[in-house]
Design a binder for these strands. Structure first.
Length: 283
DNA sequence: AATCGGCCCAACCGCAGAAAT
DNA sequence: TATTTCTGCGGTTGGGCCGAT
């Protein structure tokens, strides 16, 4: 079904908002709220479409919006979360009170992306982390893409160049799903997961010809992460948040990943006793 | 002073999914 | 269950600003 964009309705104003329009919108929302965006402009007496009103309110007029430059902490949080979540700006914004997805998106495209590109080019290209080493050890002319079939296909063997001291990554079939066990007896479990996700970003952005479904496709559905060493259980699934299969809401997903990688950001390896086996079930 | 080009950011567009009917 | 309507998201655009020439 294709819907006609509401802004194509005749007589509706587009473009920059005037102070008077802002005033009307703020005043109306303060009085009556915004239960129905589509009806709001008509009721408020604005010659705008509901979508335009919603955008103006959520990105600019909302009282809890924080204006001004991003702090160093915010910047780091964005970088960290973008590594995990990709361009899921709304999810990133949910972790930065007072910042909008649009603002973060703009900040990323105009500042951070360039900044990271600059720093990446100056960095040593050699792999230094376990998963990078796995990728490197199995690399072909397609480079890091080799890590993808390596992990996606079941019954693969451990890369010979990876020692037990570094990490063990293997897959086992379970419930007709691809299951990846990440046993990291000597390293940081969070660290390992993060490196997998880093690999995902590289895989998904460089994928061109492979017929194997990407291991970490942007639409990846991680539905279960169980930690053997603790009682923590987390679930992720794209779809309804009231799914009753023990699946959590999107916000909880974000909370989990945020907390996980904030911890991972602590570069100091954790004691061995804190580690365990993390299982990612992929659909 | 005028022009040009790059940067920034508010706003728009189209799509997908949720909610309502 | 199918269809329609509404909302939210991410990508993109275009105009204003500002520094360089």
């Amino acid at each position: 079904m294709v819907r006609t964009p509401c802004c194509e309705e005749m007589g509706l104003k587009k473009g920059p908002w005037t102070p008077e329009e802002d005033r009307i919108l703020i005043s109306y929302i303060q009085q009556f709220g915004h239960a129905n965006w589509r009806a709001l402009p008509r009721q408020a007496g604005l010659l705008r479409c509901g979508k335009s009103c919603r955008l103006r309110w959520t990105n600019y007029l909302r009282p809890d919006i924080k204006r001004g430059n991003f702090s160093k902490e915010e910047e780091e949080t964005i970088i960290k979360l973008h590594q995990i979540l990709g361009n899921r700006w709304s999810s990133i914004a949910a972790k930065l009170p007072g910042r909008t997805d649009n603002e973060i998106k703009n900040f990323w495209h105009t500042r951070l992306k360039k900044k990271l590109q600059r720093s990446n080019t100056s960095m040593n290209n050699s792999a230094s982390t376990p998963v990078q080493k796995i990728a490197q050890s199995t690399s072909t002319s397609t480079g890091i893409m080799a890590v993808q079939p390596q992990i996606v296909m079941s019954n693969i063997e451990e890369p010979s160049s990876i020692t037990k001291e570094e990490a063990t990554v293997r897959t086992v079939p379970r419930s007709s799903r691809n299951v990846i066990n990440i046993d990291n007896d000597y390293g940081n479990k969070y660290f390992m997961l993060k490196e997998c996700l880093d690999a995902k970003i590289k895989c998904s952005t460089t994928s061109t010809t492979t017929t194997t479904p990407p291991l970490f496709d942007p639409k990846l559905q991680i539905i279960s992460l169980n930690s053997k060493s603790s009682t923590d259980q987390y679930s992720m699934k794209k779809g309804s948040s009231n799914d009753n299969n023990g699946l959590t809401s999107k916000n909880e997903d974000m909370d989990f990943w945020y907390n996980l990688f904030v911890k991972a950001g602590e570069s100091t390896p954790r004691p061995v006793k804190d580690f365990g086996c993390a299982t990612l079930r992929l659909e």
